[in-house]
């Protein structure tokens, strides 16, 4: 009967004491909120195509910029972290989550000054995304270019 006092298997045995993760509900929330954020993006894109001189190809830039602006403002108003707690990956994966990670880090370190606080910490969380993006893109680009050259 000394199951839980077994130090070696403690980590495994306490699992039954942990609150159950509702995979379905969490997944549904992420799916719906993530989908809605993408639909907002679609609406913004349609807006730029209809009212400004953008086409399907070029409208992506102002759309992403607008989404980032919205996310930054929601972060400033203290709303995005609430959405994040509710939606999980639904608000983490869209580009708005990227903007939130930048703005929240900058905002958090405001008290340490503009240079050492805001500017230094701006990429505290988002830096890893840019590093992995650039390194992977460079590697894949190198491989593809080499393959193209060998074939071509």
């Amino acid at each position: 009967m000394t199951r839980l006092n077994d130090v070696k298997n403690y980590k495994k045995n306490i699992k039954s004491y942990h609150p159950k993760t509702n995979y379905f509900l969490n997944g549904l929330k992420a799916f719906v909120i993530g989908g809605l954020i993408c639909d907002l993006g679609e609406a913004v894109q349609k807006f730029y195509i209809t009212f400004f001189d953008f086409n399907e190809k070029t409208a992506g830039d102002p759309t992403v910029a607008t989404m980032i602006l919205i996310a930054s403002l929601l972060t400033g108003f203290g709303v995005y972290d609430k959405i994040g707690q509710f939606a999980g990956a639904g608000s983490l994966i869209p580009v708005t989550g990227f903007a939130n990670s930048i703005t929240s880090a900058a905002l958090e370190h405001k008290s340490e000054g503009i240079v050492l606080g805001i500017a230094t910490n701006l990429f505290k969380l988002a830096g890893s995304v840019i590093v992995f993006g650039v390194v992977s893109a460079a590697i894949f680009g190198l491989i593809r270019l080499t393959v193209n050259n060998l074939l071509g």
């Binding site: 609150p19 959405i83 707690q85």
Partner: peptide, 13 residues
Amino acid sequence: RYPTEYGGSKPKT
């Protein structure tokens, strides 16, 4: 943990 305004969700534990 993270900045207070960061939107990463926390687990129930």
